[in-house]
Design a protein around this nucleic acid. Structure first.
Lengths: 110, 110
DNA sequence: GACGCCCGCAACTGTTTGGTTGCATACTCT
DNA sequence: AGAGTATGCAACCAAACAGTTGCGGGCGTC
């Protein structure tokens, strides 16, 4: 079964889990208490997130803390980069257009 | 039916379509020719992408050109921003740690 | 107007997914 | 060792999804 980061963030519940554990690792029970979902549902999402390596389990006694692998988020950032270039170049084009219009205005004044 | 940009990019075929039409609008047939998929399969993905407003159809004669709404990509960028802050702060912490180690080294030399 | 493209829509199929329920395992505390 | 807690795993279900097939409606050319 091939999973990727994009599938991981496709589900709103999973995005909520990611946001929740971003700042500090949490246990499945603690996560489930934070929004109205059953522990088992959270557990299934955590399994998927673990498979995607977005999240890493850390056993501490009888509890398992799940920690966000922030580096995986960078993968999305890298993928987005190709489009960032496009919207930045569009912005530059708009900028060029605006300055051209400004120049025309100036020339007409003369 | 609620769709969002994250569902749009969850499917690899859809990411390929997005990448394909990023630079210039294309028709469903033209898109389908670019990778081994049927026209109808592409058409279904385009419908989902249209519902997510990632893509906009433009009728020209009997052809329909699909154009990428690059601004929708910015939404992902904005969502990613909260995590970007985290990994940047981690990097800074690492930096602080390194300079501290460096200082200790210096002090020991004295 | 008739034919040939380009395309969306509806019906159908096999697969995946999100969620629930029940059970087994492992650790902690007394 | 026994009770209680934290958790994963398998089985099951309904809904969603990706893809195929067939059909009908525009548009353009002859």
């Amino acid at each position: 079964m091939k999973r990727d980061i994009f599938q991981a963030i496709a589900d709103p519940t999973r995005r909520a889990i990611i946001a929740l554990i971003a700042l500090q690792a949490m246990t499945p029970n603690a996560i489930a208490e934070n929004f109205n979902t059953s522990r088992q549902a959270v557990s299934k999402h955590l399994r998927i997130l673990t498979e995607c390596e977005v999240v890493t389990p850390e056993q501490r006694g009888r509890e398992i803390y799940y920690r966000l692998e922030i580096d995986k988020m960078k993968e999305i950032d890298e993928w987005l980069d190709q489009y960032r270039k496009i919207w930045e170049s569009r912005f530059e084009q708009l900028d060029v257009l605006l300055t051209e219009l400004q120049q025309e205005k100036q020339e007409r004044k003369i």
